[in-house]
Write a protein that binds this DNA or RNA. Structure first.
Lengths: 111, 111
DNA sequence: TCTCCATATGTGCAATCATACATATGCTAT
DNA sequence: ATAGCATATGTATGATTGCACATATGGAGA
């Protein structure tokens, strides 16, 4: 549903969308993923290559249980997907958009 | 600086970038902005039209001091900019990228 | 100068969250 | 079946954070 605003300067009605309810909740949950250093590093690593929990833990120097917790979070939100090969589970980014957003962030910061 | 990873499957070296240090900090701070419902609503409102603190407060039904606090946050990170007209200060999005990211989020969620 | 409105700041509380420890589950090969 | 590695889960805790209350600043007009 659109929101109607009265422009203070032009005195005209402006139509636009302000997310509410479930979409708002989903959006904040989605973006909160990017708001933590550990998760950003995990996502960046997965943007380079699919990896298993142990690899991520070793490469990034993060406790295994922490990695596992965060990956579960990432999977719940649909940002990573898994593929089992024997006893090893490979994690990878499930969507280009995730990487797009990372790059947009870097772009915004001017790096 | 790039990170070198050993691909478990191909056994080849993979080169890529995992943000660390100041960039990592800036990125998490940047994305944490989007991780709160109040800020998302404020940003969405500003994507429709520039507005002053009181207008935002009224349109969105958020306490004035809360809006002011959040706008200060948003300004510190460089996401909004201000323009004074008399005693009224108009806030607006300072960069297209902010809106791009919002839309990417909506796109990811499939709305 | 005094008053009014717009905006900003100080502070405390409640709630959320990231992390690590200990432990459990699950898969594989011998 | 049992040993060993990979992964997941339960839980406690320290830290962070969003918010509103009260209050302060600051500009504009009378």
């Amino acid at each position: 549903m659109d929101t109607l605003l009265l422009d203070r300067r032009t005195q005209g009605l402006i139509e636009g969308y302000v997310p509410e309810g479930e979409l708002l909740f989903s959006l904040t949950r989605f973006f909160s993923i990017f708001a933590d250093g550990t998760r950003l590093r995990i996502l960046s690593a997965l943007a380079i290559s699919e990896m298993c929990v142990t690899d991520i833990s070793r490469v990034l120097g993060i406790n295994q249980t922490t990695v596992s917790h965060q990956l579960r979070f990432l999977k719940d939100v649909g940002m990573v997907c898994t593929e089992r090969h024997g006893k090893i589970i490979f994690y990878s980014l499930s969507n280009e958009i995730v990487n797009d957003i990372l790059l947009k962030g870097v772009e915004f910061l001017g790096y």
